[in-house]
Computed example of a mutant assay.
Amino acid sequence: MSYTPKVAVVILNWNGVKYLRQFLPSVLSSIYPNLEIIVGDNASTDGSVEFIKNEYPSVRIIQNDDNYGFTGGYNKVLEHVDADYYILLNSDVEVFPGWIAPVINLMESDPLIAAAAPKIRAFNQKSHFEHAGAAGGFIDSYGYPFCQGRMFYEVEEDKGQYLQSGEVFWATGAAMFVKKHCWHEAGGFDDRFFAHMEEIDLCWRLKNMGYRVMYCAESEVFHLGGGTLNVENPFKTYLNFRNNLLLLQNNLPFWRAVFVITIRIWMDLLALIRFLSEGKRKDAWAVSRAHQNFVLSLFKPSKKNKKLNVPKKYPLKGIYKGSLVWTFFVKKKRHFTELDPTDFL
């Protein structure tokens, strides 16, 4: 009799009882023979824990004593979870009964596959991909993340153009499958990120260690998005700009990081000017704060990546060698399928 890996779906919650009420039933309908459903709670005050205890007593609850964000929250919760695979699932994701097995089967096919994600489509526009993950994540040579199915603000309709599973650069944290031993070997999330781009940092770290990250086209979920921080929130702007710089600092060789970060800071200043021209002063200030915080962070680099500061022996598949900004805004190539495959590592 073959062994069935144990899988733990872990939903991190902070004052999201309305999302648990709407989406948790679909997660509980998941069909997989060795499965545990867990909600990790970041000290919610909206009755989330009481709701789960009363309505879904079979769901295990792990409670944190404070709101540690997405990164710290998961780091603390997963210390108490025993499974072969973790599935980090946002509370605003709708799933279907058979969504788990295709991804696990893909990951079981190769011991070097550390993380993977299903296809992510938009809950409110189900014909289209969802911004946060679409059909697998990539990154350009200047640190701009994008996806099959989403480049900057351009989100594609799913017309079957990404039906092939394959290696990508990063898997979205909205529905990330990761092998337990890989998670712990890499040290989990970098707590400094709090939220946003932490999954890209983790995947980059895993790739630097010689592991692979995959997109599984045979599984799909629907993500509402913006459940905690909507796109108009200046704090989200701050996190995106600050964390993108941390991402480069953490994972690039030193002199390459100096070069790329210098360019990115100037490009970010252009974004700041654009925000001001559009009357978005809070977003402009968020960019400035992001730069200030990043400079301060240079004096306390991440401990997680120190042990990985060695010559990289592995090809980091999924990097676009050009500039996505130039390709998108100047050359007007708005879809992933328009990019030249030879321009990727």
Rank of each mutant, 00 (worst) to 15 (best):
D41A: 06
F177A: 04
G227S: 04
F329K: 04
G227M: 02
Y56I: 02
N305A: 12
Q148K: 15
D46A: 05
I104E: 12
V213N: 05
L202V: 10
S127K: 15
Q292E: 07
N75I: 10
R21T: 14
K317Y: 13
R205Y: 00
S2P: 12
G279H: 07
D268Q: 12
T337Q: 06
R289N: 12
A290C: 05
P118Y: 04
Y153A: 09
D82W: 09
E338W: 01
F152T: 03
L24W: 10
I87E: 11
L106G: 00
L270Y: 04
S165F: 06
I37A: 05
F254A: 13
P57M: 00
E108Q: 10
H335Y: 11
G40P: 08
G187H: 08
E199F: 10
E167C: 05
Y68G: 03
F275E: 12
A174Y: 13
D191T: 09
T228G: 04
K331P: 02
T228M: 08
A135G: 01
I319V: 15
L276S: 01
F177Q: 04
E278M: 12
Y68D: 04
D46G: 12
A195C: 03
L298A: 12
N244K: 13
N54V: 06
S2F: 08
S58H: 03
L252M: 14
W170Q: 09
Y86Q: 08
C182W: 06
R281S: 04
P145T: 06
V155G: 03
A122P: 00
A117Y: 01
A101S: 15
N305L: 13
I261A: 09
I263E: 07
A195D: 08
E79M: 13
K179T: 08
L345C: 09
K126F: 07
I61R: 00
P5T: 07
Q249H: 14
W170H: 15
R274Q: 12
T237E: 11
N244P: 02
V81Y: 11
I31C: 15
A284S: 09
E154F: 10
K304G: 09
L106W: 06
A174Q: 14
I87W: 11
D92R: 03
T337H: 05
I87H: 11
F259C: 09
L206T: 02
D82G: 07
M176R: 05
L78N: 07
K313G: 13
N251C: 14
D140N: 07
A114N: 03
L35W: 01
M151Q: 11
K300V: 15
A217M: 06
H80C: 10
S302Q: 11
K332R: 15
A115T: 10
L339N: 01
R256I: 14
K313Q: 14
P57D: 02
A135D: 01
V295E: 07
R274M: 07
K6V: 02
F123H: 14
A116C: 05
S302W: 04
I11G: 02
L270F: 05
K304D: 13
L298V: 10
M176D: 05
L20R: 01
Y74W: 05
F152E: 04
Y68R: 10
H131Y: 12
S2L: 10
A122T: 08
P311E: 11
W14L: 10
M209R: 08
M107Y: 06
L252Q: 12
M107R: 06
K179Q: 13
W99S: 15
S26I: 11
